[in-house]
Design a protein around this nucleic acid. Structure first.
Lengths: 215, 215
DNA sequence: CGGATCCTTGAGTGGGCTCAAAATTAGTGG
DNA sequence: CCACTAATTTTGAGCCCACTCAAGGATCCG
């Protein structure tokens, strides 16, 4: 990450990476802000959210380690909604000028991330519109477990979910009280286990089956 | 698909446009289908939907005249969910090969459409997660009125909404019975009027205000 | 050790659902 | 153009899932 002092700074690539740190509850982006870089999350979690005038909050995207934080900024150049850190976050700022200059691999990665985000949002519309509380919470845990597993952060069904129950409620469109009850139910049914912020999914397939389309 | 056998295919524009017709309930795309073209809707409405194993349906996108039907196919090449015509539909198939060949205006339009879809989906997550039935239905009518107005299809607060109440229910995540009651309520409050499939919004701002963040 | 945040549990309420049937409209073939 | 059927809309009665309000316990952190 260091080593910026060279003669020819032509290739603005890996030397002197622009690393940013954010404390919990600190904003990575505000509403309607102009951006000339996207973040690649290295460590920690963040979310995009919408705050209604009367205080209701809805989270519309979760950013986990390895995710690009708002790949569509490459296309639009601005954030429509605020992004806030849910934990301490370490991220790399990827300048869009650089990406545009060499339209190769990195552009494709970002465009792929845009498509992933579209599909993930579409899935959550289905969940919020047509699934029960238990199905929504179960689906969220299953999805988070899968995403963490995909980046090597779930070993033996074990992973860390740093969300509060209030956060979970704001993702799945429920109240924190009800989320608490649903989590208790899932645990009693043996589909998941907790110890602190650690989530254990003994049988991912069983959770997936129990949660999708309870006939 | 036709019209490729000529000497100078320089201007691949208006000659022999690939126009497709779809009857109501006919599919424009199936799940997991490969696409080498996107549709530009000329006339009629279509939707993307998800059908859960037990029969519940959730609509995750509406396509109105002027919309590109699945701009992200340019990036992914395949449909994740089925698209079905809600009315008779006339659409132009825009071959992606053509678009890629001359990466200019049309590419930007499609990428802009992708960003619009992301933002619209994000808005609907907020609605489904945190808004009441009345707010959701009112928001939908307000949004549809605005989108139709933007393409010159709402004259004097008057526009055509060819959706059944069942369709509306599958967009806003309610039952058709409850949608019917909510519509009656909105009409009684003078926020909207109906006559057949024609929707009249006397005061768009009043509807918008009544529906967003009822304190 | 004190304060704040977060989790847990109980009791009661209500918004949207289910079930059911009738009225209206749209579609279709003769 | 009409008879017939299917689809859609409307209305009523009762129920349940998730919400609200509230209080006590646990955990974290300075």
């Amino acid at each position: 990450m260091a080593g910026a002092s060279r003669k020819h700074i032509m290739r603005s690539d890996s030397n002197s990476e622009d690393i940013r740190q954010f404390r919990r509850h600190e904003h990575l982006a505000r509403k309607d802000e102009v951006h000339e870089a996207v973040y690649k999350i290295e460590e920690g979690w963040a979310c995009r959210y919408c705050l209604l005038p009367d205080g209701r909050r809805q989270i519309t995207a979760l950013f986990l380690p390895g995710d690009y934080c708002e790949p569509q900024w490459m296309l639009s150049g601005r954030s429509e909604l605020p992004i806030v850190a849910l934990t301490e976050v370490r991220a790399v700022a990827v300048p869009l000028a650089t990406v545009h200059a060499k339209p190769g691999d990195s552009v494709m990665k970002l465009l792929g991330a845009v498509v992933d985000m579209l599909n993930r949002q579409s899935d959550w519309i289905v969940g919020l519109g047509r699934k029960s509380a238990t199905e929504r919470v179960g689906s969220l845990l299953a999805e988070l477990h899968r995403r963490l597993h995909d980046v090597g952060r779930a070993i033996g069904g074990r992973c860390t979910i740093p969300l509060t129950q209030q956060d979970i409620a704001d993702v799945v469109g429920l109240t924190p009280v009800h989320v608490n009850r649903v989590l208790g139910d899932l645990r009693q049914r043996g589909l998941v286990q907790f110890s602190g912020k650690t989530l254990i999914v003994p049988e991912p397939e069983q959770l997936h089956a129990a949660v999708l389309a309870a006939a």
